[in-house]
Simulated scan of single mutants.
Amino acid sequence: MVNCAVKNWQGETVGEATLELKVANPENAEHIVHRALVRQTTNSRQGTASTKTRSEVRGGGRKPWRQKGTGRARAGSSRSPLWRGGGVIFGPKPRDFNIKMNRKERRLALRTALASRGEDLFVVEPFAEQLPQPKTKELAQAMTRWGVELGVKTLIILEEFPENVFLSARNLPNVKLMRADSLNIYDILAAQKIVTTPSAIEKIQEVYGD
């Protein structure tokens, strides 16, 4: 369980919010979070890197010179990996990097990772009405009042974000918006600060609280 103070648009403490999630046992927590992180980063690889072997490189069918009598080493093809323009030995070929992980384990790892970020979690009142028009400067000033330094890698988790909030946040450096029902473990761990709202916390507990 994580208890956080709720701040308003001016940065004043106006209440308290609690994030209750079932997390992994302390002895297994680091292992399962690491597995989930490796799975996500590995599964994002395209696996399209490819090189040609000596049999796939164009040309090289004719023997460069006769077998004996020249004083040079034997050569059967100009596409040998030892030659310039030749094939590649043990080079990459297209492959599938996907790693499987049970859904329950993935969700447990996500809850554990989120609960571990309690010290970096900032809960604020819904602020969409404070931005009747997209204003990046006003949102940046509000984040400073909440205690989030500008330039710090920040993840803003909202139940849903209106267009004015999206347009206000998109030009802030190192700030990423994410819906509460579409979290992933990489962004949770990569962010230095996490900003959310009470309604987003309720949504997180509803979606991931099993």
Rank of each mutant, 00 (worst) to 15 (best):
R66M: 05
R66Y: 04
G69N: 13
G69W: 09
T70Y: 06
T70P: 02
R72M: 06
A73S: 06
R74E: 07
A75M: 13
G76N: 11
R79G: 00
S80H: 05
R84P: 06
G85T: 00
G87I: 03
G87C: 06
P92G: 07
K93N: 06
P94M: 11
P94N: 08
P94E: 08
P94W: 07
R95D: 03
R95T: 02
D96S: 10
N98R: 15
N98S: 15
K100Q: 12
K100I: 05
M101H: 07
N102V: 06
R103V: 12
R103C: 11
K104H: 05
K104P: 00
E105M: 12
R106N: 06
R107L: 07
L108M: 08
L110F: 08
L110G: 02
L110E: 04
L110R: 04
T112G: 02
T112Y: 00
A113H: 00
A113E: 00
A115G: 11
A115V: 07
S116V: 09
S116M: 13
R117V: 01
R117S: 01
F122S: 10
F122H: 15
V123M: 03
E125F: 04
F127M: 06
A128Y: 07
Q130I: 11
L131Q: 05
P132W: 14
K135E: 11
T136E: 13
K137E: 14
E138C: 04
E138G: 02
E138S: 14
L139N: 04
A140C: 12
A140N: 07
A142T: 06
A142G: 08
M143T: 01
T144R: 13
T144M: 14
R145T: 11
R145S: 14
G147Y: 08
G147P: 03
V148Y: 00
E149L: 14
L150D: 06
V152E: 09
V152G: 06
K153Y: 15
I156P: 00
I157L: 03
L158C: 05
F161L: 08
E163M: 13
E163S: 12
E163D: 11
E163I: 06
N164A: 13
